[in-house]
Nucleic acid binder design. Structure first.
Lengths: 190, 190
DNA sequence: GTGATTTCTTGAAGTAGTTCAAGTTTTTTT
DNA sequence: AAAAAAACTTGAACTACTTCAAGAAATCAC
């Protein structure tokens, strides 16, 4: 139901009943089964996706055929390839459900209209993106300054939910080391 | 002069004369000499900074005392620690001029007021941050999928200006390898 | 509840990059 | 134009992590 998104927005901005109705008229609801893809490399990222329920990851397949996870996202967060979404060019990435999930999606043209019609909505996205970019800067800092083992322990503390919900081999690739090495870290064999 | 910022904004959004005047009344101009700091770790990032002239970097000093550059920025871009700026908590980062530079700065409270008073300005920042976050996602992808040598050649192609204007040891740390290794890559000794 | 699939573990061998130390070149300052 | 400071280079020794291969454990599907 779009109400999940409306309620989420209501926590951050004030919306009139007409504005809510306008948003409801533009969103698309999807049920996505575990392992299903919301986006595949080569396709254009047509939709910005809000996760109403479940868990997703954004990953790339490198030239050796190995998957590298760049981002995890759970309920009340957005997951989209912003590069492909804003330029409407082919994406490098895959977006995949890690659990059975429900998403609320909006196309670029609809979102552009909504942002112009509802300035507080544009404000909401400005703030979300500011936080996302800040988090991304911090992530690069952690990648640069911590060893593999430090990154694992730091992430486990900071995001225990993800560690619970996500297979270890995906977590290892997100932290930029091999699945085997994570296994050894956890066993204390390093 | 604040006109540099106004002209830049004018390329992206339409502003009335009163809106321009409002912006002019809030900005602070600074001349920053090469090597001078705009922000140091432990301080709160009070200002969002637009570079009217020159070149900056954002870096961290790790626990071994080594500097790691996380970001470069030149004319017509912004450089700020968004995490510290939005939370108004102590920063982990330093922001330093790489050349003699001129910046146009706005405090958080002034920027909040401007964003509310001028919806197109908030739109401009939403788009800037969307691009920044997208670029940051791509950067993590490059860090994950390319070797040190590939990262160097890719960056040299994509951003030749930076390679010209920035000392090699800063570039090496931005690409996440040692200055010595970059020297060997350039000499073809690897 | 059994078979099939997916995920996790372990050790041994290998390597992409680091660190250190000393010298050289380039740029800046006066 | 000289002196000082900053930036770059080189080789040798080292190490944090990868890769491979094979087996064990957990989870899923019917």
């Amino acid at each position: 139901m779009p109400e999940h998104l409306i309620q989420h927005l209501n926590k951050h901005i004030q919306l009139t009943e007409e504005e809510k109705e306008l948003i409801r008229s533009k969103v698309v609801l999807k049920t996505v089964k575990k392992k299903e893809l919301l986006l595949r490399a080569g396709d254009v990222c047509l939709m910005q996706n809000f996760i109403a329920k479940g868990c997703f990851r954004l990953f790339i397949i490198n030239e050796k055929g190995a998957e590298q996870t760049l981002q995890f996202s759970i309920e009340d967060w957005w997951i989209t390839d912003y590069m492909s979404f804003s330029t409407q060019k082919a994406s490098h990435f895959y977006i995949q459900a890690i659990e059975n999930s429900e998403v609320i999606s909006i196309s670029k043209s609809d979102l552009d209209q909504l942002n112009i019609a509802i300035p507080p909505l544009e404000r909401y996205f400005r703030i979300v993106l500011q936080k996302s970019f800040a988090a991304s800067q911090m992530r690069i800092m952690f990648l640069f300054t911590m060893s593999a083992e430090e990154r694992y322990h730091h992430f486990k503390n900071a995001q225990p939910d993800f560690v619970r919900r996500v297979p270890q081999y995906m977590l290892a690739s997100y932290l930029d080391f091999s699945a085997e090495f994570l296994s050894k870290i956890r066993a204390g064999k390093v």
